[in-house]
Amino acid sequence: MSSLQRPMAASAPAPAAPLSAEQAKVVLAEVLKAFGAPENAQRLDEARDNACNDMGKMLQFLLPVATQIQQDVIKAYGFSSDGEGVLKFARLIKSYESQDPEIASMSGKLKAMFLPPMTLPPHGSGTGGVAAS
């Protein structure tokens, strides 16, 4: 049996052990590498083309492909291979962004791969918004 003991009665996988910043950096680098792999880059390009830079369509076409690519990498590091595992990984990376400029940079690159560039409406366009308190 491995050094990571799991209780016999547990039906769900054990939660991922928190990664150090250095470990998170390694996993993040592997995720970026996976996004750059030719077959994954092609899948992302096709999904991006189908989405036509429409945020709703991005969620429909691009996000599932991006999520699957991340799942394939992070499951080897103890994260569950479902959407919850991706969310836990994203929260972990977010927690290190302010402490480690390299993680912040890598995280920005990752987001840029599957989120459309955000264009702000012209200032004073009068289209509602949130009032400052």
Rank of each mutant, 00 (worst) to 15 (best):
A16R: 10
N53Q: 09
E22V: 09
D100P: 07
E102M: 13
D82T: 04
D82C: 09
H123W: 08
F35K: 02
Y77P: 04
G56L: 15
M8N: 11
S125W: 05
M55W: 11
D72N: 10
E84Y: 08
L115G: 01
N53K: 08
A37S: 14
P122C: 05
A51G: 12
L115Q: 06
A14K: 10
I103L: 15
A9F: 15
L110R: 03
K33D: 14
G126P: 09
Y96K: 10
K25G: 13
T67G: 01
P117H: 08
P13C: 06
Q23F: 04
L19M: 08
Y96N: 11
M106L: 13
Q5K: 11
S95E: 14
G85M: 09
K111M: 07
V73K: 02
A14T: 12
E30C: 08
P117Q: 09
P7Q: 15
P15F: 08
E84S: 09
A21F: 03
Q42P: 06
A17M: 14
A112H: 04
L110W: 01
E46A: 00
Q23A: 13
G85L: 05
E22Y: 05
A24S: 09
A10L: 13
D49V: 01
A12P: 03
L87M: 15
K111A: 07
S3Y: 15
L32E: 11
L115T: 04
T119R: 15
Q99L: 13
S98Q: 13
I103W: 03
I93L: 14
L28W: 08
P122F: 08
A21P: 04
A112F: 03
I74D: 02
E30S: 09
T67V: 03
S107G: 06
S95Y: 13
L59C: 03
K57V: 02
Q71D: 01
G124W: 13
S98C: 06
I103H: 09
K57N: 12
N53C: 08
Q71P: 00
A132R: 11
Q71T: 01
A29D: 15
A21T: 07
L32V: 09
S133N: 15
M113R: 07
S133L: 15
A37N: 07
G56R: 12
K94P: 03
L63Y: 05
K88H: 14
L19G: 02
S2W: 14
G36F: 09
D54L: 11
V26Y: 09
S81A: 10
P18L: 10
S80G: 06
Q68S: 01
P121S: 12
F79S: 06
P101Q: 13
Q5R: 11
V31I: 08
L62E: 01
A131Y: 03
S95A: 14
S3E: 14
F61P: 00
I69R: 00
P7T: 13
G78K: 05
V31C: 03
P18T: 09
F79I: 04
C52P: 01
K57P: 02
V65P: 00
K25S: 15
L19P: 02
S11N: 10
E97H: 06
K57R: 15
